[in-house]
Structures are given as structure tokens and as C-alpha cells.
Nucleic acid binder design. Sequence first.
RNA 1: GGGCCGUUAGCUCAGCUGGUAGAGCAGCUGACUCUUAAUCAGCGGGUCGGAGGUUCGAUCCCUCCACGGCUCACCA
Length: 492
Amino acid sequence: MEDYNELIQQRFKKLAEIRESGIKPYAGKFDATTSAQALNDGHQAASKEDLEKNRVTVSIAGRIVALRSFGKACFAHVQDGSGRIQLYFQKNTLGEEAFFLFKKLDIGDFIGVKGFLFRTRTNELTIEVESFVLLSKSLRPLPEKWHGLTDVEIRYRQRYVDLIVNPEVKNVFVMRTRIVQAMRTFLNSRGFLEVETPMMQSIPGGATARPFKTHHNALGMDLYLRIAPELYLKRLLVGGFERVYEINRNFRNEGISTRHNPEFTMLEFYMAYADYRDLIAMTEEMISSIATDVLGATEIEYEGQKISLAAPWKKVTYLDSLREAGVPEEVLSDADKAREYAKKAGATLKGGEPLGKLLNEVFEAKVEPNLIQPTFVTDYPTDISPLSKRRDDDPRFVERFELFVMGREMANAFSELNDPVDQKERFQKQVAEREAGDEEAHQMDEDFIRALEYGMPPAAGEGIGIDRLVMLLTGSSSIRDVILFPQMKKEK
RNA sequence: GGGCCGUUAGCUCAGCUGGUAGAGCAGCUGACUCUUAAUCAGCGGGUCGGAGGUUCGAUCCCUCCACGGCUCACCA
């Protein structure tokens, strides 16, 4: 931490003076009768004369965010959890002693005030303060009032300051909470049960990604932070839960970018006796209803582009999406031609990739960036979908879709593979890829196979990246703007 | 991890060709009882991200390092 500068030292001095005068600079509770927003909303229609005729006495607590001082009077704004309201302090009203303490206050201090409402000459609803208490002395200066705080490093590292001075930042996080609430309401109303499954797993499964490793001392065993809850949620299907979901953190030991944070939040839900087609309809309904709940609209703008979340959304099969992007037919079924084509498209290949993986390189380069309006891409190659059920008509493809908006993957869903023999073979294939050097390939999970051998009902499951959904709905271009405390390097 | 860019007062930013740093806000002192970017007068505040190097002299040029941003790779 840096040394205390002159401004901070001045405030420590004021703190000492306040203590010397027998006043507690860090008080206990304060009973506010109202909030800034309640006052502004509730007295919108009250005229200057109304307020003079029928005096409204209020008490409110908050942080001083602006001070405009005259000799024997002062205007201030306090900010509470709901908004801001102006205060007016007069020496005549407060008395000598209280006015002396008032002079020791700084921007940033928390105070509780009692007073009555009036309107100023400029008609701003204001509290004339009759008495006040210092609730908490602030020792550090807040950023200036014109430009506020824009340094992104300070904004992320000291999010508390960002939240104090940038109301739109706070609003994004309020919206995030509302989005998640709307999601829970949607799922709960359809009979889904929210559950919690292990964050620490001895075999990190359910996704292709590199995990964080940790160690349990008493058990003497390595554990991994989960990369997905999928395999545990499916064990619950085996156990008889028919509709379950989990909204929680996943951890992936990979690069950090404007779209990736090492810990991020996913919704995963599983629905017995359904297939991926049911989830297409449900996803359209869920996301458009969340948008309506939270934004009051299904038309949004993201990074200058208008996006319509009104159902129905475009659907295209994986192969057709490649065809539409101009990929020649022979590339779609020939691994050698696909390899050549993927290379030309700029993919970095290690060699030995199966056709599905090669096609996916092409897909990511040629198709994904152009999926601006919500689009379901269906029927993925089996090679890159080790947990999905095969299509009856063509086992090279699975019953799976991904949802793309703004060229980004928003959801991934499939009919769950419930054939233990097929699942075991797929794991074995993954293990082989792992042994061939693919660190992200699945490991064998014997217990999961055992669970499937007891019998898992046919089911469909889906994952939706909450952070990315929040980005979309709040117009945020960086994932760090929708995560309160994004991961940063250690401060020096 | 690679490439590009950035880091100057508490905050937001200037700083020319290399000659040891400025503004606004915030702060302090004083004036001021309806301001809201309050106003007026005065004052203080800097390891110019860090360490080396070049130079008579470095905020400025070079090297390395740290942190951040964008981007590519990896991925969701």
C-alpha cells in the first residue's frame, strides 16, 4: 500500500479533532425513516407551498458526495443505496456546536440527518437539516466530480470506489442480479429444483478445459476446481431428480481476456424425458422472457448493432451453416480436405485431429463471427461432443445445439447420452486424445459410467454462460464489467 | 505466452527538438445564509511506474522489469 498522502493525513487530523471533542466518528446504528429515491418519488408533486404548509419531517442516512459551502450555510448531496438527495445546513438551524462539527465533515463521510423537506429557489427537493450524526468518517479522498473515476485498473481493483462514483456501474450489477433472479423464477415455475454439486472434484469433467489443481491435506489427495457441474447433475437424474439446475461458478485455468475470467458463472439445467428440441423452445422463451422482465423489451443494442431477442430465432444445422459460409461439399466429409481447408482458414493444427474437430476449426473461423442475431446451430459432429446422444439417422452427428448471439456462444445444449456402453467408448476415445497430448480431453470417470449403468432416463441438458448473457443484456463489452471483482495480477 | 499501446499531484489530463514539471477538480486558509461544475482571494501538494544505460544534463532516447488496456493464441 502506498504511503498516506497529504490529503489522507489531513483527514486523520480531522478524525483526531472529532474524537477529542468527544464525538464518536464511527457510530452505531441509525434509524432512517426513508431513502433518497422514496423522497424524490413520493414528493414529486409537492410544491414549495405544500411543503411549507404541511411540514414533512424525515431522517435519512448516506454518504456525502458533494459539498457547496457558504459562510454560515451549506448545500450537500448525500447518496444512499437508492440515489441522491440534497441537504441544506444552516448555522441558525443547527446551532453553534453542531455547525462546528459540520465544518469537519468531508466528501465521503457517512452521516445520518433529521430535518424537514423544502424546495429551493431552483425547485430542488431538499432536506433542511435540524440535526445530524456522523456515522463514519472517510479518510481517503474520492475521485473528482467532473470526470469521476475512469482508470480501469483502479475501477477493477478498487471496485468499491467505482461503485460509489459511477452509478451506471452499480446499475449493471443490479441488473445482473435481476437477470439471475428472473432466470431462477423461470426455472422454478417449470418445476426445476436448484441444487449444489461439488466445486472440488477429483476428476474434473463435463467440459474440455484445463482445471485448477489444489490439494487436500487431511485426505492426502489432489483435487480440481470444477470446470463444469455436468456429470454430477446427471448423477442426480440417475437418482430420480427429473428437473434440476445449478447456477454457480466454474473454474478454468486458461487465458484471461475481455470474454474470459478464470472463474465464471454458468447455469446448467437438466430435464428428464426431454430432448434437445424441447430445449430450443425453452431457451427462446427463457431468454426473451428474462429480457422482457429486466429490460422491458426484446429489442436490444449491443456494440452498435440492433439485436432482436423476440422468438422464434433462426435455426440452422451445423453442416448447413458451413455450406452457407461457402465451404465446399467435399470438405464436409473428407478429413484430408477438411484439414487443408482449416489450415487455409487460419487454424493452428497439431495433426491427427478427427474430421469433426477440423470442421469445428472451420466453423469457428467462418461461421461463428457472422452469427449476430440469435441463431441455434444444431447437430454437431460426434467427435467434439463426447457427452451427447447420437442422431438415430446419422451417428456421426449428435442431438446438440449451440446458441450464438453477436458471434459469441451463449448456450450449449444436447440430448444427454444415457447409453453407458457408448459413453464408456467416448471416454476411452477422449483418454486416447489426452494421451496423444490434448490436455483438455476428458478423463475416464468410472463412477459416472457406473451411474449410467444403473440407468439414466433420457434427458436434455443445457448450459448458459451467465456472464455473457449479462454482457449482452447490459451492453457491456468486457466480462470484467459484469464481474464485481474480476481476476487481476497481484498489485505491486 | 506473442504483438501494439499506455503508466506524470488524491482524480482527470497537458508537458514542443533532451535543459530537473503544469492545469482543472479535490485539499488547506480567508470572504460569503438558496447553491448544484457555486463564486472570489491566497496557499500547499510530485521518487514523472521501478531498475539500469546513453548524455555535461533524461518525464523525454535505449534496455530490462512491473502493472494495465487492446489484440492474437487457448477457451465459455
